[in-house]
Protein backbone atom coordinates (compact mmCIF):
# COMPACT_ATOMS: atom_id res chain seq x y z
CA UNK A 1 0.00 0.00 0.00
CA UNK A 2 1.24 3.43 -0.95
CA UNK A 3 2.04 5.77 1.93
CA UNK A 4 2.60 9.13 0.26
CA UNK A 5 2.41 12.07 2.63
CA UNK A 6 0.16 14.26 0.46
CA UNK A 7 -2.08 11.62 -1.08
CA UNK A 8 -5.35 10.12 0.07
CA UNK A 9 -3.78 6.68 -0.07
CA UNK A 10 -7.05 4.90 0.65
CA UNK A 11 -8.47 6.30 -2.62
CA UNK A 12 -5.86 4.46 -4.71
CA UNK A 13 -5.80 2.75 -7.19
CA UNK A 14 -7.01 5.67 -9.30
CA UNK A 15 -9.54 5.54 -12.14
CA UNK A 16 -7.15 6.36 -14.98
CA UNK A 17 -6.42 3.86 -17.73
CA UNK A 18 -3.21 1.79 -17.66
CA UNK A 19 -0.31 3.94 -18.89
CA UNK A 20 -2.15 7.26 -18.51
CA UNK A 21 0.13 10.27 -18.16
CA UNK A 22 -2.03 11.79 -15.43
CA UNK A 23 -0.58 9.40 -12.87
CA UNK A 24 2.96 10.49 -13.76
CA UNK A 25 1.98 14.17 -13.45
CA UNK A 26 0.32 13.48 -10.10
CA UNK A 27 3.40 11.73 -8.76
CA UNK A 28 5.66 14.55 -10.02
CA UNK A 29 3.39 17.11 -8.35
CA UNK A 30 3.30 15.10 -5.15
CA UNK A 31 7.10 14.96 -5.05
CA UNK A 32 7.34 18.70 -5.68
CA UNK A 33 4.94 19.45 -2.84
CA UNK A 34 6.84 17.05 -0.59
CA UNK A 35 10.13 18.79 -1.40
CA UNK A 36 8.59 22.20 -0.76
CA UNK A 37 7.12 20.80 2.48
CA UNK A 38 3.88 22.75 2.05
CA UNK A 39 1.30 23.08 4.82
CA UNK A 40 -1.77 20.96 4.06
CA UNK A 41 -4.09 23.54 5.60
CA UNK A 42 -2.58 26.41 3.60
CA UNK A 43 -2.80 24.75 0.21
CA UNK A 44 -5.82 24.48 -2.05
CA UNK A 45 -6.05 22.35 -5.17
CA UNK A 46 -8.71 23.40 -7.67
CA UNK A 47 -9.65 21.52 -10.81
CA UNK A 48 -12.25 21.60 -13.55
CA UNK A 49 -13.71 18.66 -15.43
CA UNK A 50 -11.85 15.95 -17.26
CA UNK A 51 -9.55 13.03 -16.62
CA UNK A 52 -6.73 15.21 -15.28
CA UNK A 53 -9.20 17.11 -13.11
CA UNK A 54 -9.76 13.94 -11.12
CA UNK A 55 -6.34 14.60 -9.60
CA UNK A 56 -7.53 16.53 -6.48
CA UNK A 57 -9.62 13.49 -5.54
CA UNK A 58 -6.39 11.70 -4.68
CA UNK A 59 -4.68 14.63 -2.96
CA UNK A 60 -4.95 15.21 0.77
CA UNK A 61 -5.49 19.00 0.78
CA UNK A 62 -8.44 21.33 0.72
CA UNK A 63 -9.66 20.46 -2.75
CA UNK A 64 -12.25 21.89 -5.07
CA UNK A 65 -13.62 20.03 -8.09
CA UNK A 66 -15.50 22.62 -10.14
CA UNK A 67 -17.40 23.08 -13.41
CA UNK A 68 -15.93 22.59 -16.86
CA UNK A 69 -13.38 25.27 -17.75
CA UNK A 70 -14.15 27.38 -14.70
CA UNK A 71 -11.42 26.12 -12.39
CA UNK A 72 -9.46 29.38 -12.74
CA UNK A 73 -12.55 31.45 -11.93
CA UNK A 74 -13.14 29.49 -8.71
CA UNK A 75 -9.42 29.64 -7.87
CA UNK A 76 -9.40 33.43 -8.37
CA UNK A 77 -12.17 33.65 -5.80
CA UNK A 78 -10.30 31.43 -3.35
CA UNK A 79 -7.08 33.43 -3.74
CA UNK A 80 -8.80 36.81 -3.38
CA UNK A 81 -10.72 35.69 -0.30
CA UNK A 82 -7.53 34.50 1.38
CA UNK A 83 -4.31 35.65 -0.36
CA UNK A 84 -2.20 33.64 2.10
CA UNK A 85 -3.16 30.36 0.48
CA UNK A 86 -1.07 28.55 -2.09
CA UNK A 87 -3.51 27.68 -4.84
CA UNK A 88 -2.87 25.04 -7.48
CA UNK A 89 -5.15 24.81 -10.47
CA UNK A 90 -5.09 21.56 -12.42
CA UNK A 91 -6.71 21.61 -15.83
CA UNK A 92 -6.70 19.53 -18.95
CA UNK A 93 -6.07 20.94 -22.41
CA UNK A 94 -9.76 21.07 -23.33
CA UNK A 95 -10.58 22.56 -19.96
CA UNK A 96 -7.94 25.30 -20.08
CA UNK A 97 -7.75 26.23 -23.75
CA UNK A 98 -11.20 25.59 -25.22
CA UNK A 99 -13.96 25.81 -22.66
CA UNK A 100 -12.01 27.92 -20.18
CA UNK A 101 -9.86 29.74 -22.73
CA UNK A 102 -11.07 33.17 -21.68
CA UNK A 103 -10.54 32.44 -18.00
CA UNK A 104 -6.97 31.41 -18.78
CA UNK A 105 -5.99 34.55 -20.66
CA UNK A 106 -7.57 36.84 -18.10
CA UNK A 107 -5.97 35.05 -15.16
CA UNK A 108 -2.65 35.52 -17.01
CA UNK A 109 -3.45 39.18 -17.66
CA UNK A 110 -4.27 39.87 -14.00
CA UNK A 111 -1.13 38.08 -12.86
CA UNK A 112 -2.99 36.60 -9.90
CA UNK A 113 -0.88 34.31 -7.72
CA UNK A 114 -2.10 30.92 -8.90
CA UNK A 115 -0.03 27.93 -9.95
CA UNK A 116 -1.73 26.50 -13.01
CA UNK A 117 -0.81 23.07 -14.32
CA UNK A 118 -2.23 22.29 -17.74
CA UNK A 119 -2.09 18.58 -18.50
CA UNK A 120 -2.02 18.46 -22.29
CA UNK A 121 -2.90 14.99 -23.54
CA UNK A 122 -3.90 16.36 -26.99
CA UNK A 123 -7.49 15.20 -26.68
CA UNK A 124 -10.72 15.26 -24.67
CA UNK A 125 -10.08 11.92 -23.00
CA UNK A 126 -13.02 11.59 -20.64
CA UNK A 127 -15.80 12.38 -23.11
CA UNK A 128 -14.56 9.94 -25.73
CA UNK A 129 -11.62 11.38 -27.64
CA UNK A 130 -12.90 14.52 -29.38
CA UNK A 131 -10.26 16.89 -30.71
CA UNK A 132 -9.16 19.84 -28.62
CA UNK A 133 -7.37 23.06 -29.62
CA UNK A 134 -4.11 21.28 -28.80
CA UNK A 135 -4.60 18.23 -31.03
CA UNK A 136 -1.67 18.45 -33.49
CA UNK A 137 -2.70 19.11 -37.10
CA UNK A 138 -3.13 15.87 -39.00
CA UNK A 139 -3.61 13.66 -35.95
CA UNK A 140 -6.84 11.70 -35.61
CA UNK A 141 -9.61 12.07 -33.05
CA UNK A 142 -13.22 10.84 -32.87
CA UNK A 143 -14.45 14.15 -34.27
CA UNK A 144 -11.55 14.36 -36.73
CA UNK A 145 -11.55 10.85 -38.29
CA UNK A 146 -9.52 12.02 -41.34
CA UNK A 147 -7.06 14.02 -39.30
CA UNK A 148 -7.23 17.35 -37.49
CA UNK A 149 -7.72 20.18 -39.99
CA UNK A 150 -7.24 23.13 -37.69
CA UNK A 151 -3.95 24.55 -36.53
CA UNK A 152 -3.31 24.34 -32.82
CA UNK A 153 -2.28 26.71 -30.07
CA UNK A 154 1.20 27.13 -28.72
CA UNK A 155 -0.13 27.34 -25.18
CA UNK A 156 3.03 28.70 -23.59
CA UNK A 157 3.31 31.51 -26.14
CA UNK A 158 -0.36 32.28 -25.55
CA UNK A 159 0.07 32.47 -21.78
CA UNK A 160 3.17 34.64 -22.13
CA UNK A 161 1.46 37.00 -24.57
CA UNK A 162 -1.50 37.25 -22.20
CA UNK A 163 0.82 38.29 -19.38
CA UNK A 164 1.70 35.23 -17.28
CA UNK A 165 4.91 35.88 -15.34
CA UNK A 166 6.20 32.30 -15.20
CA UNK A 167 5.70 29.94 -18.12
CA UNK A 168 7.26 26.51 -18.43
CA UNK A 169 6.64 23.29 -20.28
CA UNK A 170 7.47 19.77 -19.20
CA UNK A 171 6.64 16.28 -20.37
CA UNK A 172 5.69 13.06 -18.67
CA UNK A 173 8.81 11.47 -20.17
CA UNK A 174 10.99 13.94 -18.28
CA UNK A 175 9.51 13.26 -14.85
CA UNK A 176 12.35 14.60 -12.70
CA UNK A 177 12.70 17.94 -14.57
CA UNK A 178 8.90 18.25 -14.35
CA UNK A 179 9.11 18.12 -10.56
CA UNK A 180 11.79 20.82 -10.65
CA UNK A 181 9.66 23.04 -12.91
CA UNK A 182 6.65 22.74 -10.61
CA UNK A 183 8.86 23.59 -7.63
CA UNK A 184 10.25 26.59 -9.46
CA UNK A 185 6.78 27.79 -10.46
CA UNK A 186 5.79 27.85 -6.78
CA UNK A 187 8.47 30.48 -6.12
CA UNK A 188 6.88 32.89 -8.58
CA UNK A 189 4.62 35.40 -6.88
CA UNK A 190 2.24 35.98 -9.79
CA UNK A 191 0.49 33.70 -12.23
CA UNK A 192 2.60 30.72 -13.21
CA UNK A 193 1.66 28.14 -15.77
CA UNK A 194 3.30 24.79 -16.38
CA UNK A 195 2.10 22.94 -19.45
CA UNK A 196 2.74 19.21 -19.27
CA UNK A 197 2.83 17.20 -22.47
CA UNK A 198 1.01 14.08 -21.37
CA UNK A 199 -0.26 10.88 -22.92
CA UNK A 200 -3.67 9.36 -23.55
CA UNK A 201 -2.96 5.82 -24.77
CA UNK A 202 -6.63 4.93 -25.28
CA UNK A 203 -8.19 8.07 -26.78
CA UNK A 204 -5.18 9.40 -28.67
CA UNK A 205 -2.42 6.80 -29.00
CA UNK A 206 -4.54 3.89 -30.17
CA UNK A 207 -6.48 6.00 -32.66
CA UNK A 208 -3.24 7.34 -34.15
CA UNK A 209 -1.59 3.92 -34.47
CA UNK A 210 0.90 4.64 -31.70
CA UNK A 211 0.56 1.31 -29.96
CA UNK A 212 1.98 0.70 -26.54
CA UNK A 213 2.18 3.03 -23.59
CA UNK A 214 5.92 3.45 -23.79
CA UNK A 215 5.83 4.15 -27.55
CA UNK A 216 3.42 7.02 -26.87
CA UNK A 217 5.76 8.40 -24.23
CA UNK A 218 8.57 8.24 -26.77
CA UNK A 219 6.38 10.07 -29.28
CA UNK A 220 5.95 12.83 -26.70
CA UNK A 221 9.69 12.87 -26.04
CA UNK A 222 10.48 13.18 -29.75
CA UNK A 223 8.17 16.20 -30.08
CA UNK A 224 10.02 18.05 -27.31
CA UNK A 225 13.34 19.90 -27.41
CA UNK A 226 14.93 21.44 -24.37
CA UNK A 227 15.04 25.21 -24.61
CA UNK A 228 18.81 25.24 -24.01
CA UNK A 229 19.47 22.70 -26.76
CA UNK A 230 17.11 24.60 -29.08
CA UNK A 231 19.27 27.72 -28.87
CA UNK A 232 21.96 25.87 -30.85
CA UNK A 233 19.58 24.28 -33.38
CA UNK A 234 18.56 25.59 -36.80
CA UNK A 235 15.02 26.74 -37.56
CA UNK A 236 14.50 23.79 -39.86
CA UNK A 237 15.34 21.26 -37.15
CA UNK A 238 12.96 22.96 -34.76
CA UNK A 239 9.95 22.85 -37.09
CA UNK A 240 7.05 21.02 -35.43
CA UNK A 241 8.94 20.70 -32.13
CA UNK A 242 7.82 22.06 -28.79
CA UNK A 243 10.27 23.70 -26.45
CA UNK A 244 10.46 22.33 -22.91
CA UNK A 245 11.98 23.80 -19.78
CA UNK A 246 11.55 27.25 -18.27
CA UNK A 247 10.44 29.47 -21.15
CA UNK A 248 9.62 32.79 -19.49
CA UNK A 249 10.16 34.19 -16.03
CA UNK A 250 9.46 37.90 -15.69
CA UNK A 251 8.27 38.74 -12.16
CA UNK A 252 5.69 41.53 -11.86
CA UNK A 253 3.42 42.79 -9.10
CA UNK A 254 0.85 40.26 -8.04
CA UNK A 255 -2.89 40.96 -8.26
CA UNK A 256 -3.98 40.37 -4.64
CA UNK A 257 -1.21 42.76 -3.47
CA UNK A 258 -2.48 45.44 -5.89
CA UNK A 259 -5.98 44.75 -4.59
CA UNK A 260 -4.88 45.19 -0.96
CA UNK A 261 -3.60 48.66 -1.87
CA UNK A 262 -7.01 49.54 -3.34
CA UNK A 263 -8.70 48.33 -0.15
CA UNK A 264 -6.41 50.63 1.84
CA UNK A 265 -7.11 53.65 -0.38
CA UNK A 266 -10.88 52.98 -0.37
CA UNK A 267 -10.80 52.62 3.45
CA UNK A 268 -9.18 56.04 3.86
CA UNK A 269 -11.75 57.59 1.51
CA UNK A 270 -14.61 56.10 3.50
CA UNK A 271 -13.28 57.45 6.83
CA UNK A 272 -13.04 60.95 5.46
Amino acid sequence: MSDKKYLRNDKLPHIWCPGCGNGIVLSALERALEQANVDKDKTVIVSGIGCSSRMPTYMDFNTLHTTHGRALAFATGVKLANPELTVFVIMGDGDATAIGGNHLIHACRRNIGLNAIVVNNNIYGMTGGQYSPLTPTGMKATTAPYGMVERNFDLCELAHAAGATYVARGTVFHAKPLTDLILESMDNDGFSMVEVLSTCPIGFGRRNKIRGNYELMEWVKNRAVNVKAAAKMSEEDLRGKLLIGRLYSEPAEEYTKCYDKIIEIAGKEAKR
Binding site: S2, K4, L7, L12, P13, H14, W16, P18, G19, C20, G21, N22, G23, I24, L26, S27, A28, V172, F173, A175, K176, M217
Partner: peptide, 13 residues
Amino acid sequence: KQCMLHCPDFAIE
Protein backbone atom coordinates in the same frame (compact mmCIF):
# COMPACT_ATOMS: atom_id res chain seq x y z
CA LYS B 1 14.67 5.03 -10.09
CA GLN B 2 13.28 5.80 -13.56
CA CYS B 3 10.66 3.07 -13.06
CA MET B 4 9.51 4.64 -9.79
CA LEU B 5 9.46 8.19 -11.21
CA HIS B 6 7.42 7.12 -14.25
CA CYS B 7 5.02 4.69 -12.59
CA PRO B 8 1.57 6.23 -13.07
CA ASP B 9 0.07 4.04 -10.37
CA PHE B 10 2.40 4.60 -7.38
CA ALA B 11 3.09 0.87 -7.45
CA ILE B 12 6.91 0.85 -7.32
CA GLU B 13 8.76 1.84 -4.22
